[in-house]
């Protein structure tokens, strides 16, 4: 059972990393490009408003982070502190939920 959980987490973390890598590049490149062009926050927001493309890019970003980060943090906590077991797994799930809530709010504000 624990073997299955660990293997699933491994798949989820690798899979989400695979999704995140290009999205991070897109995000950084767009940011640099937008600022260089001298766009203000209002101008940027006017372009992202009602944009299905930006909505899905950042929606996917949030989903991938919500999967990726809690798994990584769970591993670090297990290595660096004595905390492990069920309670840590629940805490990681809560962390995931927090990222989803904050992320969805942030993406909502773009649209």
């Amino acid at each position: 059972m624990t073997g299955r959980l660990e293997a699933w987490l491994y798949v989820a973390q690798r899979g989400s990393a695979f999704v995140l890598a290009p999205l991070v590049v897109v995000h950084l490149a767009t940011m640099i490009y937008a600022i260089r062009g001298g766009l203000s926050a209002e101008e940027i927001l006017s372009r992202t408003e009602d944009s299905a493309v930006w909505g899905s890019v950042y929606g996917l970003f949030v989903a991938a982070v919500a999967v990726h980060a809690p798994i990584g943090v769970r591993s670090i906590v297990r290595e660096m502190t004595p905390w492990k077991g069920r309670s840590l797994d629940v805490a990681a799930l809560l962390f995931c939920a927090l990222i989803v809530v904050l992320g969805v709010r942030a993406v909502g504000a773009l649209l």
Binding site: T2, G3, R4, E6, A7, Y10
Partner: peptide
Amino acid sequence: HLAAAAGDAGCHQ
């Protein structure tokens, strides 16, 4: 063997 290797102290760490 694979089940033991995949456990929470195993290869994925």
